[in-house]
Measured scan of single mutants.
Amino acid sequence: VKVFRALYTFEPRTPDELYFEEGDIIYITDMSDTNWWKGTSKGRTGLIPSNYVAEQ
């Protein structure tokens, strides 16, 4: 598990995607895809765009 911080707010387009706000901490559990990672924030899990976060 790696810890990342959201650089921007992300509004999901599908139920599989995770909503998060700029500054949120996201725990990444799967980075197997280059563009979409699986992450958890505020008790919810979903896909996030990798270019919206920076490693802490």
Rank of each mutant, 00 (worst) to 15 (best):
V1Y: 14
V1N: 11
K2W: 12
K2C: 15
K2I: 08
V3W: 12
F4N: 02
F4V: 14
F4E: 01
R5Q: 11
R5P: 02
R5G: 03
L7Q: 04
L7I: 11
L7D: 02
Y8M: 13
T9C: 09
T9K: 12
T9R: 11
T9H: 08
F10N: 08
F10A: 11
E11Y: 15
E11L: 15
P12I: 05
P12L: 04
P12W: 06
R13A: 12
R13Q: 13
R13N: 13
T14R: 12
T14V: 08
D16S: 10
E17Q: 14
E17A: 08
E17G: 10
E17K: 08
L18D: 01
L18K: 01
Y19S: 12
Y19G: 15
F20K: 00
F20Y: 02
F20I: 11
F20W: 01
F20M: 09
E21W: 04
E21G: 05
E21C: 08
E22N: 06
E22Q: 14
G23V: 01
G23K: 02
G23H: 05
D24S: 05
D24M: 05
D24I: 04
I25W: 09
I25Y: 09
I26T: 06
I26S: 00
Y27S: 06
I28N: 00
I28P: 00
I28W: 01
T29W: 15
T29Y: 15
T29P: 01
D30T: 03
D30E: 11
D30W: 03
M31P: 04
M31A: 07
M31W: 11
M31Q: 13
S32Q: 10
T34D: 14
T34H: 13
T34P: 15
T34G: 13
N35H: 14
N35P: 06
W36E: 02
W36R: 05
W36P: 00
W36I: 06
W37M: 03
W37P: 01
K38D: 03
K38Y: 15
G39E: 01
G39I: 02
G39S: 01
T40A: 08
S41I: 14
S41H: 11
K42L: 07
K42R: 14
R44I: 09
R44H: 09
T45Y: 14
T45A: 11
T45S: 14
G46D: 00
G46W: 02
G46C: 03
G46M: 02
G46L: 01
L47Q: 05
L47F: 12
L47D: 03
L47E: 03
L47A: 05
I48C: 04
I48N: 01
I48Q: 00
I48K: 00
P49Y: 05
P49D: 05
S50E: 04
S50A: 14
S50R: 11
N51K: 11
N51L: 09
V53H: 02
V53N: 01
V53L: 14
V53I: 11
A54H: 10
E55S: 09
Q56L: 15
Q56Y: 15
Q56A: 15
